[in-house]
Design a protein around this nucleic acid. Structure first.
Lengths: 197, 197
DNA sequence: GTCAAATTTGACATAACTGTCAATAATAAA
DNA sequence: TTTATTATTGACAGTTATGTCAAATTTGAC
């Protein structure tokens, strides 16, 4: 390489992620990203081709980070504890920033199919990975005994519920409300009667 | 009134609703609405002022229709039957049109707060009305006996879950998957053990 | 039929956005 | 230090959008 990039690529992708996360893919312009990062629009096009490719690059960071966080929260063998930690983590992710940014995956999913095939495939993959993580975590014999349904089913329900939380967050902007319904959801999935088995 | 509107206002609002429903508030232009309805853009501005007011007018139709449908599905005193019917109705609403349009409320909620205060308030009201309808339907003694949680809690969970369904619909576009997880959700809320009480 | 008031129409002003490109600047490697 | 290659910069073309407005048209009421 003869001349090197004059901006800190890591820092720029980080700021670009926050920008997309805040306003969503469609509502974020390259001008927004350029202003937020301090990098000229032309440089962004030179480095990343177009808005979609830049988005996919920033989403990659977001997705990996999110799944890592989920993996950690699911480490406890008790499904009630694991699911509570998972949902707390998801809610924490929904309400970061001031004003809070909500869920980038959900924002992007809702923009489908307008956002295009590549983005659609990427979002789908994240949801599938999330489902797999949860299903695996709930598939131990100890977890099965405490759940009110099969782990496969529970995983689908939890994923769907997290998407619901993301929507409710946008409408009400009330972290306590989110925490409350999340806890109640765990109580239904892991009923009191089965907790001590 | 000296000169009357030359277009069928009811038909225009109906088509405008479908247009907003398909692409969401932000991604729908007045040009889109004008082309879909066959009414000139200038006439739309003359009649409705601006895009936001036109949207709110069409959303009103959508919301009333949606809540009427929910009311009907919840009429059965058995909570498992009522909730199954409710979720089937919601899913039916998500997948109407070709290609399916998803959920206008969820699309709009996800666009908040960019869509503005008036739209935010309207969406919130629909969610509150929906919650109230479900809570009331589940608050009978017969229903309470069969539910795995309090009616208030169940209502919040169901509303959140329907929002999740709307997101999952966008990502997977698989009505059967939606039906499956919806039924499983009902099974968790109304456990087999309590069905025959 | 006339008229007053509303609607329709098409043009206009303004703004924002995406992507491209030629000219300029920068730099790793020889 | 030179050079080949890449990055940066700012202008440009093309597109799309919102909202406004004056002129033309329409029509219910008298």
């Amino acid at each position: 390489m003869v001349n090197t990039r004059q901006f800190d690529e890591d820092a720029v992708l980080e700021v670009a992620l926050k920008t997309f996360w805040q306003n969503g893919f469609a509502a974020t312009s390259m001008i927004d990203v350029a202003e937020a990062t301090g990098v000229q629009r032309g440089s962004l096009y030179n480095a990343y081709g177009d808005k979609e490719r830049l988005f996919l690059l920033t989403y990659e960071r977001y997705a990996n980070r999110f799944l890592d966080s989920v993996r950690q929260t699911l480490s406890n063998p008790d499904p009630a504890i694991a699911l509570t930690a998972l949902l707390k983590g998801v809610i924490a992710s929904l309400i970061v920033g001031a004003p809070s940014r909500g869920c980038l995956t959900t924002k992007t999913a809702i923009e489908l199919p307008l956002a295009g095939k590549a983005i659609e495939a990427r979002v789908k993959r994240l949801l599938e990975d999330l489902t797999t993580l949860i299903r695996d975590a709930l598939s131990t014999p100890a977890a099965r005994r405490k759940l009110s349904c099969d782990p496969d089913i529970a995983a689908d329900l939890v994923v769907t519920f997290t998407r619901g939380l993301a929507v409710i967050e946008r409408a009400y902007r009330n972290p306590q409300h989110l925490e409350k319904i999340a806890q109640q959801f765990v109580n239904v999935l892991v009923p009191e009667a089965k907790r001590r088995r």
